[in-house]
């Protein structure tokens, strides 16, 4: 996985995807849509293949990085949304994030992490998968909130723009945003509980002081509050959508900037 050509390949693939998706977004044509979807499916298929290959050599963690799981989950989520609710616009965001994470890992490769015996446990693997899928679900939920805000803006300003025709209805993005948040929250909670359990079983020191753990708990609290407020209000409003939209910053801070003393979280 650490081979440079693979990074280059995926960066070019996502770059082209993004280009097609954006062109389609600004100049909607059926063929462009088909090309965008086809390229995304190709990217997803190749990532899935790599994922399966990696699963075959399960627990030999060499050469595998967590962002790959994030990218795969983003693509899977956006394709599921496309299949069930014809939400094409989510593909633009998914490709954008995938392009960014692959590019970031090409520019700043993490080659110095130490693979310990602990990291080769299947429990740790499940912990990482759940956390990364939760992050992807939260990211897609934030994108949906962004779409809600943009559609709401166009409708309030009465701007009948060609982009508005591409965007899904407010009700639809609300529903998707909520479902994704619920999925993300459940997975993150499970991942945290499992993380604590692993730490309790196999580590000498407490992980409560680990910045990444604290960051994850904050994320959990923030999203729980958003969902509870949503439940109380009955529907999403602009304030709530802004909260959801901006929460992606918390994810990024927690993923990229909170250094940790644990070798395992260092790997993540």
């Amino acid at each position: 996985m650490s081979d440079g050509w693979l990074y280059n390949f995926f960066i070019y693939l996502f770059g082209f995807n993004l280009l097609f998706a954006l062109t389609y977004f600004f100049s909607p044509q059926t063929r462009l849509r088909q090309v965008t979807i086809s390229f995304t499916i190709v990217a997803w298929g190749m990532e899935s293949l790599l994922f399966i290959l990696w699963l075959i050599q399960l627990f030999s963690f060499q050469g595998f990085e967590s962002f790959f799981l994030y990218s795969w989950a983003m693509l899977t989520g956006s394709l599921i949304c496309l299949y069930f609710v014809k939400l094409d616009v989510l593909l633009v965001f998914a490709n954008f994030f995938c392009f960014l994470v692959w590019l970031q890992h090409l520019i700043f490769p993490r080659s110095d992490f130490l693979i310990t015996e602990l990291m080769m446990s299947k429990w740790v693997f499940i912990h990482v998968v759940m956390a990364m899928v939760a992050y992807a679900a939260f990211s897609l939920s934030s994108c949906s909130a962004g779409m809600y805000l943009f559609t709401n803006y166009l409708l309030k300003k009465k701007k009948w723009h060609s982009i508005l025709r591409l965007l899904p209805s407010l009700g639809q993005v609300q529903l998707i945003s909520k479902r994704l948040m619920q999925i993300g929250l459940t997975l993150l909670l499970c991942s945290l509980i499992q993380g604590f359990w692993i730490a309790y079983q196999r580590m000498d020191h407490s992980i409560f002081f680990d910045p990444k753990t604290i960051g994850s708990i904050i994320i959990l609290i923030v999203y729980t509050c958003i969902l509870l407020y949503w439940k109380m209000k009955g529907c999403q409003n602009r304030k709530l959508a802004w909260w959801n939209f901006l929460s992606i910053l918390l994810l990024m801070v927690n993923y990229y900037f909170l250094n940790t003393s644990f070798s395992f979280h260092n790997w993540v």
Partner: peptide
């Protein structure tokens, strides 16, 4: 695809608000 009557435009707008 784009409505060209006032009443139909209203329906299309409604479809942008509700699922």
């Amino acid at each position: 695809k784009n409505p060209v009557s006032v009443s139909y435009a209203a329906v299309e707008l409604a479809k942008k608000i509700f699922t």
